[in-house]
Write a protein that binds this DNA or RNA. Structure first.
Lengths: 255, 255
DNA sequence: CAGTGGTCTAGACCACATC
DNA sequence: ATGTGGTCTAGACCACTGT
């Protein structure tokens, strides 16, 4: 770049701004191919690294994807509705997400059961002692072989020892009923939703594209005495899910 | 790189993996300085661009920040609890977030009122005609001058024409009460939470660091007849907020 | 002044898919 | 063979900060 021109905003950012504007105003529609690196180099008279940085910026914003060796494309979006069960007694593992485009058939899921040292946020919520182990049921939920979201259910070992919950198959009766039969009656729960970038393992399992954040949805259930019974977690890719809560009707004027 | 070595995983990714491992296992603690680009170049015998890409990857994962010209640092985290009002009659604009570290003083907010063509997702939920305008109250919520989150409230013009809601100051009585006095009694609401990367305008207003996703929390309130009355939105940075719902107690066994 | 990261250039070789 | 993006090198100049 000639030194005559003071660049207040870097060239790569101006290129990214141009392309972004075309995406948001509909000049470039989802699925459409973006200019190649070579054409950006020619169009703006920049080096390849500069053109790449502009395109990388759009990827980081979640607006574009790269599909080598075909080029860069405007990202397509289709989001499902993820509606957490709002009745505590209901089966806590959410059923297949609420709304699917026509053509989607049977949901699929793979379950595994393990005894692990839970992550810190689960230890805190189950009030486990340091180093105390817990049982976890892990699932990858898929739709037509494509991964949709991850879920985990953590239980203190004492709660689920020798129950049906420890078997990966056969959970016909439902976790809530099994726990209630053992005296763990849940009547209070707290949902927490964290928003963060995925860790590489989540990127791999969910086949996430760069620039895709996830919602980490965490439900802690308690008994009537306040003792935590279990922690359910869901990792919901931002490009596939919208979390939805219906608020209970209010009969009184709250003012 | 010598051609003797087939690089299955790129060098920049291996460097990033090394650094990430040190962050997650606590060798590098939040706030600590990461190796400089120059030292990575020397340590791994790579060009500067390769060292930069490794560090850029950590930034994109939300694990690191750059503070030129001081260097790269492990990202600090402190999250507040954002608890949406779950009683529909309550003041819909959420009060200052639930838990603050000691030392935080008075919350601050700047409000503006405008008449705009709302974004598409608001048009859909308010069932506006194409091109129909709406009133919006926009706020930047701050704590000790630092931006925390953005909120917007959209109303069809007919609903709020000539009401106190159109004035940026003085909303002493509460939006719910003002609307109820005009015959818009809300008794049903739906919360939707989108997870996405911020647009550049949100990055600017909230001073977001690269690699920070946001939760877009959207509440649509309806009257008893099912007509939408207003849409409240919040843009909650993932590095500052955890969204929290307390589920209503359940007196019956749901199974 | 030296050291830091931000930006940019001008090349190179590679894997991959299409023609 | 051609064109695509992925990776990598070896430089350059800049702005900013602290010494």
């Amino acid at each position: 770049m000639p030194p005559t021109e003071r660049h207040r905003t870097p060239m790569w950012e101006r290129i990214a701004n141009n392309l972004r504007a075309q995406i948001v105003d509909g000049t470039l529609v989802p699925g459409q191919r973006l200019p190649t690196e070579a054409s950006i180099m020619a169009r703006y008279e920049v080096a390849r690294a500069t053109a790449r940085q502009a395109l990388r910026q759009l990827i980081n914003e979640g607006l574009a994807v790269t599909q080598p060796p075909y080029g860069y494309f405007v990202r397509r979006r289709q989001q499902f509705s993820f509606q957490p069960q709002q009745e505590i007694g209901a089966e806590p593992e959410p059923p297949p997400p609420g709304r699917h485009p026509a053509g989607f058939r049977h949901p699929d899921q793979a379950t595994e059961v393990a005894i692990v040292l839970p992550p810190r946020e689960v230890v805190d919520r189950l009030r486990l002692d340091p180093g105390e182990l817990a049982a976890v049921r892990r699932r990858i939920h898929r739709m037509e072989r494509k991964p949709l979201y991850l879920s985990e259910s953590y239980f203190p070992l004492a709660v689920v020892q020798d129950t049906e919950i420890m078997r990966p198959d056969a959970m016909s009766t439902g976790i809530f009923r099994v726990l209630a039969a053992r005296g763990y009656r849940q009547n209070r729960a707290v949902d927490e939703i964290f928003v963060r970038m995925p860790v590489p393992d989540e990127v791999r399992q969910l086949a996430l594209e760069p620039g895709t954040p996830v919602a980490y949805h965490m439900r802690t259930s308690h008994t009537v005495t306040g003792a935590p019974v279990c922690v359910f977690t869901n990792v919901l890719p931002g490009d596939r899910y919208v979390i939805r809560y219906e608020l209970p009707e209010d009969v009184e004027d709250g003012s």
